[in-house]
Nucleic acid binder design. Sequence first.
DNA 1: TATTAAATAAGAACTATTATTGTTTAGAAT
DNA 2: ATTCTAAACAATAATAGTTCTTATTTAATA
Lengths: 142, 142
Amino acid sequence: MSLTDLESKLRDRSLKCTPQRLEILKALHEAPAHPSADTVYRIVQGRFPSVSLATVYKTLDTLVEIGEIRIALVSEGKTLYDTRMSNHHHFLCRCCGHVEDVDIQLDCMENCLPQVMGKYHQVERSEVVFHGVCQKCFQPEI
Amino acid sequence: MSLTDLESKLRDRSLKCTPQRLEILKALHEAPAHPSADTVYRIVQGRFPSVSLATVYKTLDTLVEIGEIRIALVSEGKTLYDTRMSNHHHFLCRCCGHVEDVDIQLDCMENCLPQVMGKYHQVERSEVVFHGVCQKCFQPEI
DNA sequence: TATTAAATAAGAACTATTATTGTTTAGAAT
DNA sequence: ATTCTAAACAATAATAGTTCTTATTTAATA
C-alpha cells in the first residue's frame, strides 16, 4: 500500500507515477472491500472530478499487472478488485452478489498443489470460492 | 444427462420440454468442456438454425436452475458452463483463458467448511480455482 | 528547459447479456 | 382429435461493463 512501494514498482517498469494513479490507489483502499471499477470511479470523482472512467479501468489493469491489487472475482458481470494480497478465500452470495473474505488456512490445498499441477502447469495461486446465500438474503428482516 | 432425467426435472417445475431445449443440452455435451453461450449457439445453429441466441441464454439459465448444468466460472468476460456436476475444481490460464478440470479430492475443505461458515452463511458448494499459465502458453511451440 | 514516451480525457465502439414484444407451441383439459 | 393457455420462442432493441481511438497533456529524463 505504501506510496514509496508503488513508486518503485512503477519505476521498475518505466511506468509513470501520476496523480491519477495515486488517487485511484487511495480510493481502492478507502472503498468497501471488493470494489468494482465503478465504485472506485465514484470515490475518485469526489476529489479528482476530471478523472475519466477509462483511466480508472486502465489504472486498475496496471495495478493488477504490477501486483498492487488483485481481481477478487467476477460477480453479476462486474469485475471486483481486492487490495488484500495475502492468501485468503471468498464467499459469494448467489442472491445479492455480495463477496466476503473467508480467512481459513487450507494447508492441504497448498500441500497437494505442487505434486498435482507441477508437471503440467505453472500455478501461481489458488483460491477457494464458497458459493451460497449470505445471512442477509437468508433471513431478510421481515 | 439422460433425456428422461431432463424431462422429469422440467415436468416437476411445470416447464416445457421443447426441441430447442433438447438440442441445446445435446450441444452442451458435444461442445468442448466449459463452453460459452456463444459456443453452444454455434453448435446448435448447425442443426437447428432457427434457434436464437437469446433462447440459448435463457435455456442455459433454466438448465442451471434445474441443476442440469453449472456455471464453471467467468473468464474474459464470458460465462463458461459445465456439464460435469460432480465435485471438481478448475485451472484457469491467465494468458489464454483456457479452463481445465482439476480432479483432486480436497477433504480438508469439505471438513472444515461447516464449522467455519455454518453459523454465518448457507454454503452450497465450494470450488477451487487454480490460477496460472497453461503449458501451451508457457512453452509455445517456437 | 527541451524532449519524448507514456498517460490522460472524451467519447465512440464493442461485446456479452438481458429485456421487450408479438407469435408459436407443448402439454393439459376437454 | 380439438381446444385452450401458460410457457417458450424468434427477432431485435436495449443495457451495462469494458475496451479502443485520438488528440492533448504530462512525468521524468537528458
